[in-house]
């Protein structure tokens, strides 16, 4: 039998006025299994992420994380429980140095937010852990640069570094390769595959690039107009005529 799910979403709904952006979605994510959520623009993927990560409150339904009901919990608490996310449009601290970007999350995770006298730069723990993380993502050389001055691809990596620095069990990536060059995309896919294999994190991502999805995910959910249309292994999804009709059509052929 399967182990208990990491994330268990039941009949989740979110309306904007009379428009149901997420319309009764039930799904679960198993620990250690790279999972993808696909669907056309406007299918409700980002809204779904916003609901899970606490950015939006659901209109109905519930979200369980490791057996605990987290529906309506604010983002910072959800993050501290172990769910971290990236955004479709890169969301980092532009004027801070790259290493400081990572340290923001580390300070909170290590419970050092109330330390107001010691210099952050002299904190060995903060420095070493941030350095390690940056090295894993190939950002060591840029540690002292202002994050806002980096290339688009590097900025996305900085965001990934912030996400990982929160020590998450579940990582939500909203189109991690959006706007990247083919080389950068390739590198990020490799990186996620490597992290998924070695790390304790479970990745749950949305993507437009089907090569990325089918290269990474072992389980795929398809959303269409706010509802879940299908779920299965990449092969099953590829073969599903309904999915082809609704969405995959142009992109596969």
């Amino acid at each position: 039998m399967r182990p208990p799910p990491l994330l268990d979403v039941r009949d989740l709904r979110r309306n904007f006025g009379s428009f149901a952006a997420v319309d009764g979605v039930t799904l679960s994510v198993q620990p250690g299994e790279v999972t993808a959520l696909i669907g056309a623009n406007g299918a409700g993927k980002t809204t779904f992420y916003n609901l899970i990560s606490g950015r939006l409150r659901p209109t109905g339904g519930s979200i369980f994380y490791r057996g605990r009901d987290i529906t309506g919990t604010p983002p910072h608490s959800i993050t501290r429980m172990g769910i971290a996310r990236s955004f479709q449009i890169t969301n980092i601290f532009d004027q801070l140095r790259v290493i400081e970007n990572v340290q923001v999350a580390l300070v909170i995770r290590q419970g050092k937010g109330t330390r107001w006298w010691r210099r952050a730069a002299r904190d060995e723990d903060l420095r070493l852990q941030a350095g390690e993380l940056l090295e894993r993502l190939g950002l060591s050389g840029l540690a002292m640069a202002r994050a806002g001055t980096l290339s688009h691809g590097d900025k996305r990596l900085v965001e990934l570094a912030i996400v990982l620095a929160t020590d998450p069990q579940l990582v939500l990536l909203d189109e991690p390769t959006a706007g990247m060059t083919p080389e950068e995309t390739h590198a990020v896919v490799d990186l996620i595959a490597r992290l998924a294999e070695t790390g304790p994190q479970t990745f749950f991502l949305t993507e437009h690039d089907m090569d990325v999805v089918f290269g990474l995910a072992r389980r795929v959910f398809v959303m269409h107009r706010g509802r879940l249309l299908a779920e299965g292994s990449p092969d099953e999804i590829r073969a599903n005529p309904e999915v082809r009709n609704a969405y995959l059509g142009e992109e596969v052929y």
């Binding site: 604010p74 983002p75 910072h76 971290a84 996310r85 601290f93 004027q95 909170i108 937010g113």
Partner: peptide
């Protein structure tokens, strides 16, 4: 810099 990113990094 970015209070939203901060809250999603765990900052209350």
């Amino acid at each position: 810099e970015n209070s939203e990113r901060a809250s999603f990094a765990g900052v209350p």
